[in-house]
Write a protein that binds this DNA or RNA. Sequence first.
DNA 1: AAATAAATTTAGACGAGTCTAAATTTTCGT
DNA 2: ACGAAAATTTAGACTCGTCTAAATTTATTT
Lengths: 226, 226
Amino acid sequence: MTKTLSPAEENYLKAIYKTGERLNGANAGTNALAAELQTTPASVTDMIKRLSEKNLVFYEKYKGSSLTLEGSALAKSLIRRHRIWEVFLFEKLRYGWEEVHDIAEQLEHVHSPDLIDRLDVLLGRPRFDPHGDPIPDAEGNFTQRELILLSEMSCGASGTVAGVDEHTPIFLRQLDALKIKLHSALKIIDRFEFDGSMQILIDGLRETSVSEKIGRNLFILPVLAG
Amino acid sequence: MTKTLSPAEENYLKAIYKTGERLNGANAGTNALAAELQTTPASVTDMIKRLSEKNLVFYEKYKGSSLTLEGSALAKSLIRRHRIWEVFLFEKLRYGWEEVHDIAEQLEHVHSPDLIDRLDVLLGRPRFDPHGDPIPDAEGNFTQRELILLSEMSCGASGTVAGVDEHTPIFLRQLDALKIKLHSALKIIDRFEFDGSMQILIDGLRETSVSEKIGRNLFILPVLAG
DNA sequence: AAATAAATTTAGACGAGTCTAAATTTTCGT
DNA sequence: ACGAAAATTTAGACTCGTCTAAATTTATTT
């Protein structure tokens, strides 16, 4: 019943999933998908039609596309594969969090019935990838958390770094330079109206200033004051 | 300088390498390659021409093909990737030796500058894959050993299982059933002229009879009597 | 050495996935 | 509500890797 898809088809499913998610469930437009997939709108139209033939996406001319139940399950499986490979690269091969995406992008297209489950066991069934993104379980369920942006935290508040919005190497390497890692404990020392920057304490050790732009890209799991 | 090849191109290079090796360095014929690659001679001719354009193979019409220095280096790198992934699947994910080939066949096409070297380190720089085949080092050098076939051993001789000729799951599963594994110690108890079968002692524990066909497919590292 | 068989190449086609350029539909501003 | 702008689709072409059928070359047999 479950077809074997080509890497290209798999990438389209992921892109439709991501784009639809970003749009809060609305249909993904052709241009948006073309941008996400770094290709042309014409190519997207072609592929969408084929995926629609295979009952993986709903498609109506000029109205954009969304995933069917089957397409959605496949997309989530892809995300699971991707993120588990990322954990492997990060934990076992000591890659940096800015390096794992591109390699996982290739590894996720390897097809084998139980490869991912075995990897999952090897890694201790991680629930989050190296960027803090949740790894769906085999049924496609994501762990939900109440996260806020660092930029939304008030003076004196504390929390731990739980994820990043931007995933670009350039941003992640800046965090490395600032010694801000996933799970780092942060405390807001001060906030500056002038440029929206904040003074923070990292892991109770280092104090530094971070720009508003950084603050808007760091997801925090708040710690209730105690 | 080193091009990035498609999976198909990489598979052709491997096939030319294997076929050339089987023929002791002679040119690989079109039909032989088609058989090895499970495709048609016409397709082989097409691809060989393209690889020849890229200076990866020597090709002369009707005379077969062989690898250039660059093609040979790439082929050995492919074999290295394949066998290291096999070790990973066998050692870390607990796959059986009859299962690892097909998955490694996909994993070997993942391109990343240092992925394989990091895996190599994780695995403790193994020199042989789960079937006993040597893993070339990063420079393409294979570990050489003096192996003999079980069928060539005389009564009373001893050795350890160092490899298999046939790599088919059907053969490997039979060895599993017989509890003959890589590195098993074998001693020849008796040989029977009638059907060429032998009576052997495995790991000093179990005695069993094995057919001549099995004997001709097991490579042994002889242990000098002492 | 001619005839036959085997191996190989050529010719022409196809599907997947992509592209550019042109045509069409929808949306938006006024 | 009309015209302009933006989004989308269509048309036609290209590459890669494959195929079948036919033509050609090489090898073998007698």
